[in-house]
Amino acid sequence: MSFLGFQLRWNSVLLGALVTAAVLNDVPPSYEALVVLAPVIWADRTTLTWVRIRRR
């Protein structure tokens, strides 16, 4: 039996939006945005978990 779990946090959504905007506009993110998002990224707890249980 296998389980796949994914837990997405709001921090990851904000980071993804910032990276997407930077890639689409060919403009690096501003220093202010990085300073504000640095603690948010550091505290992010998004997880991807794979659990496989085997019985004998």
Rank of each mutant, 00 (worst) to 15 (best):
R54N: 12
T46A: 00
L37K: 01
R55G: 14
V23W: 04
L37T: 03
I41N: 07
V23F: 07
R45L: 11
W50F: 15
W50K: 06
R45I: 09
R54T: 09
W10V: 11
V23E: 10
W42D: 08
L8N: 07
P28C: 01
A17I: 11
T49N: 13
T46M: 01
V13A: 03
A43D: 09
L34S: 07
V23I: 10
F6T: 10
P29F: 02
L24D: 07
T47L: 09
W10Q: 08
M1A: 15
R9K: 13
F6P: 00
M1T: 14
V19L: 10
P39Y: 03
A22K: 02
V35T: 08
D44E: 12
I41D: 06
P29D: 02
L15K: 05
T49G: 08
Q7N: 12
E32R: 05
R52T: 11
V40Q: 03
A38D: 12
A38V: 13
D26V: 05
I41E: 07
F6C: 10
T47W: 05
V40Y: 03
L48I: 06
V23S: 07
D44L: 04
T49V: 15
G16S: 05
L8F: 10
V27N: 12
G16R: 03
L48F: 05
L14R: 00
W42N: 08
S30T: 15
L34Y: 09
L37F: 00
L24I: 05
L18N: 02
V35K: 04
P39N: 04
V13N: 01
N25G: 07
G5Q: 05
V27A: 14
G5F: 05
V36M: 11
A38K: 12
L14F: 02
M1L: 14
I41V: 15
V13L: 09
S2V: 13
D26A: 13
N11Y: 04
I53G: 06
A33Q: 09
T47R: 13
T46H: 02
A38P: 06
F3S: 08
L4P: 01
A22N: 00
R52W: 08
V51H: 03
L34M: 15
D44W: 05
W42M: 09
A43I: 08
P29T: 01
L37N: 03
Y31F: 15
T46D: 02
A33Y: 04
V35H: 02
R9W: 09
L15D: 12
R56H: 13
P29L: 02
A33E: 08
L18Q: 06
P29M: 04
F3L: 11
V27Y: 06
L18V: 11
R45K: 13
E32P: 06
D44Y: 05
A22W: 00
A22T: 03
R45W: 07
S30G: 15
A22R: 02
F6W: 12
V36N: 09
Q7H: 11
V27I: 12
P28F: 00
V40C: 01
A17L: 10
T20S: 13
V40A: 01
T20M: 09
